[in-house]
Design a protein around this nucleic acid. Sequence first.
RNA 1: GGGCGGAUAGCUCAGUUGGGAGAGCAUUGCCCUUACAAGGCAGAGGUCGCAGGUUCGAGCCCUGUUCCGCCUACCA
Length: 914
Amino acid sequence: MASQQLSKTYEPQAVEARWGPYWIDRGYFSDAPDSSAQPYTIVIPPPNVTGSLHIGHALNNTLQDILIRWRRMQGRNTLWLPGTDHAGIATQNVVERQLLEEGTGREELGRDAFIERVWSWKQQSGNTILDQLKRLGASCDWSRLRFTMDEGLSEAVRAVFVRLHQEGLIYRGHRLINWCPRCLTALSDVEVEHEPVQGIMYHIAYPLADDPGTSLIIATTRPETLLGDTAVAVHPEDPRYNGHIGKSIKLPLTNRTVPIVGDAILVDREFGTGAVKITPAHDFNDFEAGERHQLPRIGLLTHQALLNPDALRDAGVEPDILNNIADLSAIKARPIVVDALKGQGLLVKTDDHQMALGKCYRCKTVVEPFLSPQWFVKIQPLADPAIAAVEQGDIRIIPEEWSNNYLGWMRGIKDWCISRQIWWGHRIPAWYCATCHPEARLILDGGGSHLIPTHADPMVSETAPAACATCEGDQFIQDPDVLDTWFSSALWPFSTLGWPAHTKELETYYPTSTLVTGLDILFFWVARMIMMGLKFTGKPPFRDVYIHALVRDAEGEKMSKSKGNVIDPLTKMSQYGTDALRFTLASMASPGRDIKLSENRIEGYRNFANKIWNAARFILMHADGPTETRPIADRSFVDQWILSRLNHVTAAVTARLEEYRFDQAAGQLYQHIWHEYCDWYLELIKPVLQGGDSPAARSTRATMLHTFEHLQRLLHPFMPFLTEEIWQTIPHQGESLVRQPFPVATQEWENAEAEQTFAVIEQVVTTIRTGRALLDYAPSKSLTILATAKDPDELARLNEARDHVAHLCRGTVTIADQDTWPAGRILHLAVGGFMVGLTIEGEVDLNKALTRINKQAQAKQKEATRLQGRLGSPDFAAKASPEVVQESKDRLDLLTAELSLLASSEQQLRKMVS
RNA sequence: GGGCGGAUAGCUCAGUUGGGAGAGCAUUGCCCUUACAAGGCAGAGGUCGCAGGUUCGAGCCCUGUUCCGCCUACCA
């Protein structure tokens, strides 16, 4: 047993430093796949390997840890599998920044050396967040740590890629994608954030080719892209314009003419001028319109999103303009183009216009729709089963409201662009014959600026091919692109368990039980895991998806470094203790609502930890001495009562956890421990414990120790460090609380009679204490108390409660019929069916009491009037349920009795005052 | 544009099938009573966003409306 000395206040740092490593060293967090117990699995949402713990991680992992510790204590075969993802773009950025400081760059290093460099960076710095998760108490099975770039997981990536390709579900195509000109890579649709901006709508006259006196007015927010127009569209049923369909436009600032086409999909007659320019290489809608009308695509921009002089020349741009805008960004070129249009009298007007601008979610650079050859997942065949799984309830999304969000997105899903023009990541397992495609050799010269030609024929397989099927050449160039990091994350629930091998782990722990995650990656990650899981294992990857809130600051603002409103969980853990932070986050995790985290909540729960700590000190002070465990029926009323309450809270916490109501489970614990256990139970047992050895003291001591140990087990998933420290100090069996059984509600403990007697104590004590305050009696003053009840059952309970009341109120309690109460100065107070009298001694200002009684009488009269009205209504008697009617009657009776007692009490007081 | 969520005490939030408005923090008064001043005891504080409707009865159900937030979308 550890030392029985506990310091006066809870000092979390030492406690956390002691038990964190102890748990891990002893392997308490590892179960075995061959265990016969029912499995319970969680895979961690892998944080970026570049990451450090922010408050969102703290919430996410606290909730997972509560679940896994709870299930582990329940005896389940648990696995919480930890890991990180390789975060392609982010990690590459970090290492490139380092290289820049060293005066070099990745191009100088070359691809292989660069990747080496990233690995060594990972070796050195990639464990930051894992160490922080350990500090949080995360009870992951650290022996099963995984990384998305591990060989096993990479093998899974290749296997999935090859099979999807074989089935035609992965293809390479020359298409418009979102391009980040800073990261120099393609992005998927979900990696683009839309931000509302105030833009300008330009109305521009496009003269007809064979009738320059007549123009179509088109509206655009990006006038510079008109240089890449290859058509103008009008609505085929628009009488204003449909006569022009088939004619040609003389495209301003160029030597080109473009056709006027009719397109009912692209054109909204009500919007703008009703005539639209079509720029297939620079706009997603126009791209599709271009396909419908077989229009050429003229891409004007370079990879850096600068106007490409060669492309401008090909587009027939007038030389003056071309020279002025070549190598400028679109934003810089825009006023030049607008000026030129104005000069030619073609700018009709400009309007302010609200629009949404797409930005790279990593670097916030404005993304450009960019025409390039990329790899895509054909998503619909994967999405359909993933939709069905949620619709049919094979996967439950909690809170359920988010299912609509998921289903809506899945139903409108588009093909997923999975290729990225970076180096760090899973390289696409596709090879090109160097003999057949000599131009592909340019790839070897570096960077993302050379792409394998679109028409090139890739050979897709898990390893490099031996010979070209066409020319039998044996020189190959692997596709330079890597896969979207989320492609490997999508396999996480099964790749981490050994798939594609048929491992024991996979068999035991898959499908996983619960996925705990934030809403922000529902589409990035959750949806894709469901699709891939169903496709490759035939089973949903998890049963439940619990979606938790976003943590905001106290003002409800999203936390961000630039705003400076970030609450650093590690700082808070140092200040208030990890358990306090965990309990705060759990308490505030109400479903479907963001968390506004304020520091004084954390402080409040730090105080809660301290309260428990001091309860433990109290208990230890009274732990020495003989104990005797009696049958429940033979225990004191107080012990019977606390067991009944403990039974209740145990059942409630378990039920709330089953429903993922962490907030309510935490609330139950807080309420019970502080208010029932500390405020009442510990106070009620003081007399017997402090009264020397006795059979009663032995029994109470046993109950006290037993119930407190029970509470440590119940609270442990929420506050693991504090409870372990206390548990190790009080009498216990076993090595660690981590592996103790989670408490189970015991019907036998339920005791309605004890609870009713307690209710008497609570009511009477509170009333007497109020009386003490009204009479301004010092807490130390001993009171002379009289009490009685009308109802014989209540009177019996009052008798049982008497000594406890006397103790808790500091006084003597005489139970006697009111007729026998001594005449004279007594303050009469009523509560429930009870009447309490306090002897008035000395000079006391009774007006305070009088005011109070008046106020109480008023409130009760109001309620009584309301009830009378209700009971007087024939409709109520006829239509309300008999139980409700009876309840109303009972309540009215009670109020009437209380009112009459209050009235007589008031009368007596008035007499005394005058 | 579409969808979803929120509006309840000064603040942050609970409120389970409609039937006596709750908690934590903050606040007021008294108290350093040998577990705890990071505490104890007692108190004050709310026409549940607004307007209708259903019902004997609405914080809860229905309709409309205002404000805030989030997600989503190709209105050039």
